[in-house]
Nucleic acid binder design. Structure first.
Lengths: 160, 160
DNA sequence: CAAAATCGTTATGATCTATATCTATAAAGC
DNA sequence: GCTTTATAGATATAGATCATAACGATTTTG
């Protein structure tokens, strides 16, 4: 009945319970998000893209000629923080940034041919990695996941 | 058939499609997480707690006498970054931090009476806010959400 | 034409995150 | 035992993220 210590100078491997935190749905979402973000980071590294730059490319591709203000809003990023992102993408020749004649305050963002190609390659890799993360999960459950997440998002944003 | 511009100097309200990003489950999780994190932030503000400090208190309450290294691992935080958190909580008298006689390298973290009381109050508020975010969602779907998130987490961590 | 608002931008600070390194302690290997 | 190796907590530091104020240029409002 002696206390059987782990011995060794090895790391403290005693089990730590996170049951209380796990009761909160938000905590589970955060943990899953950490995993996904980490995986996404490694997936995008070969393309020299980050989550923001990839998301920006995707939104620009889906909404040609949108402005930085629109993109910032869609990305949930403050406009000043988007400037460097745009600068980086434009500097790499992945997007074009043209002053709009009808409103010379705004920039019209568009994918270049090179940007569209890189986006397509990155998207393929991202989808493949996400498929691995979702491996073994019933598609119906994923549909439920989407629905529930959407509802949480609406509950939190509309109710302000 | 004229182009009906928003006119005004008002913000660009043209609809921006994020359909492509929405196809990725990870993007939906991130958006829901943003909402939850924002709500949690306002919920914890009255208690002068952040997500880390709240999580730390919860884990310490659930695992009395755990070490900082254990806590850091459970929180997915680097040990150096936990030091200030512990310092803050100890400075406010919410936790005690005692050198362990059997291993004088490690600290045993425990909630003080005051810390336990604050944690209980904060937890009540957090649960109430989370219930609002989950309002109108079928409990069975929430169970599915938990299961799917857990699977994603395991798929991402075990497969390394 | 004057006033107000928006766009992109710059500057700046606060916060978060990761890494290298130090000490003191403890265990492992010979 | 004594040396080597490893861990715990802490310090310092750099990088990345994120939020806010303010400016010039431009456009719309009144």
């Amino acid at each position: 009945m002696a206390d059987r210590r782990p011995a060794r100078t090895a790391p403290d491997t005693r089990h730590v319970s996170d049951d209380a935190l796990r009761q909160l749905v938000g905590f589970n979402i955060k943990r899953a998000m950490n995993v996904i973000a980490g995986d996404l980071r490694t997936t995008l590294t070969p393309f020299e893209l980050r989550m923001v730059t990839y998301s920006a490319l995707t939104l620009i591709g889906d909404n040609p000629s949108l402005s930085q203000a629109q993109l910032a809003a869609a990305l949930s990023v403050e406009r000043p923080n988007l400037v460097n992102v745009i600068e980086e993408l434009a500097g790499r020749g992945l997007i074009s940034r043209d002053r709009v004649p009808t409103d010379r305050r705004t920039n019209a963002l568009r994918l270049t041919t090179q940007g569209a190609r890189l986006l397509a390659q990155a998207t393929e890799a991202v989808r493949a990695h996400e498929a691995q993360l979702l491996d073994g999960i019933d598609p119906a459950d994923i549909a439920t996941l989407r629905a529930v997440l959407g509802r949480i998002e609406r509950n939190g944003t509309e109710r302000i």
